[in-house]
């Protein structure tokens, strides 16, 4: 038996525990003998490991729905622990829920950004399905409704706000209230310019992660992120416009959306460089 102050403190399925054990399998033996999967500090282990103070252990029995209070801990098991707290506090608006916006939203929901505000007036139509994160069940539904349902199925523990309006110079301040970052995910270049000008002029507390140029199937490596103005990050190849003969297609659109989502993640984690 160890003295009290020699015992390890670890987190088992999110709950703080103190005990005599030194290894992960000893913890499993005590708390969930029948677990098939043992995850230590975000990584699944296949052989026993020694534990240290403050380690996080998640025990999963495949096929069994965990108790609700354990589910959130398990969802966050793969998140890098130090970053997760920062993401949970994040409030991000996504202006436009098309090829960029729907894919950005899914990424940010998976990593646990605490609040997402989804802004779009449009409905899902068949031509969207070549790149947007919707399926045939969603045809005819408002994009806000369809996307919110999907995001809640991925991560029930984040807050999703929906706004069924077209964002304009006049209503931007109201629609983006409380958000620290907005993803510009529009299709039309005049609207892109409008949103960037409005946010940078009138909403100086908000950073904007925008996109330009992601059509067709030119080299993926042309897509990049730059930081041209203090509160503006821009992703894309900056030249490949969507038009007849050079349409938007899932792979490049998703790469650009990935650039935007990762830049949001970097900002929430405290990194301002691209």
């Amino acid at each position: 038996m160890l003295e009290e102050d020699e015992k390890l403190i670890v987190f088992v399925n999110g709950k703080e525990e103190k005990g005599d054990w030194n290894t992960a399998y000893e913890v499993r033996e005590q708390f969930a003998k029948k677990s098939d999967v043992v995850i230590v500090n975000g990584f699944q282990i296949n052989e026993n490991v020694e534990l240290k103070d403050q380690d996080e252990i998640v025990l999963i029995r495949k096929g069994i729905m965990p108790k609700e209070e354990e589910l959130e801990c398990m969802l966050t098991a793969r998140h890098t622990p130090a970053v997760h707290g920062k993401l949970k506090k994040g409030k991000v608006a996504i202006a436009g829920l098309g090829g960029l916006g729907s894919n950005i939203a899914v990424s940010l929901a998976r990593i646990g950004v605490g609040m997402l505000r989804l802004i779009d007036f449009d409905v899902v139509e068949p031509s969207n399905l070549n790149r947007q994160n919707y399926d045939i069940r969603h045809l005819g539904l408002l994009k806000t409704v369809a996307l919110k349902q999907q995001l809640q199925d991925i991560n029930p523990y984040i807050q999703i706000d929906t706004v069924n309006k077209k964002i304009t110079e006049k209503n931007a301040a109201e629609l983006l209230k409380d958000c620290e970052i907005v993803c510009e995910a529009f299709d039309n270049p005049e609207n892109k310019a409008m949103l960037i000008n409005t946010v940078l002029t009138h909403l100086p507390g908000i950073k904007i992660v925008s996109a330009s140029g992601m059509a067709g199937y030119k080299s993926t490596n042309l897509i990049r992120t730059i930081h041209p103005m203090k509160n503006l990050y821009l992703c894309g190849d900056f030249e490949t416009e969507a038009m007849a003969g050079c349409g938007l297609m899932a792979p490049r659109v998703m790469v650009c959306a990935g650039h935007q989502a990762n830049m949001v993640l970097r900002l929430l984690a405290g990194e301002e460089e691209v």
């Binding site: 995910a185 299709d187 039309n188 892109k192 310019a193 000008n197 140029g213 992601m214 900056f238 938007l248």
Partner: peptide
């Protein structure tokens, strides 16, 4: 500082100034 579109015809640029211009193409 951002220059609003309404002021493009009023603002005068001198040799000491630093200008950044981003332009957007359609698609998203």
């Amino acid at each position: 500082e951002i220059v609003p579109k309404s002021r493009y015809a009023e603002v005068i640029i001198q040799n000491k100034d630093i200008i950044e211009v981003v332009s957007f193409v359609g698609g998203g």
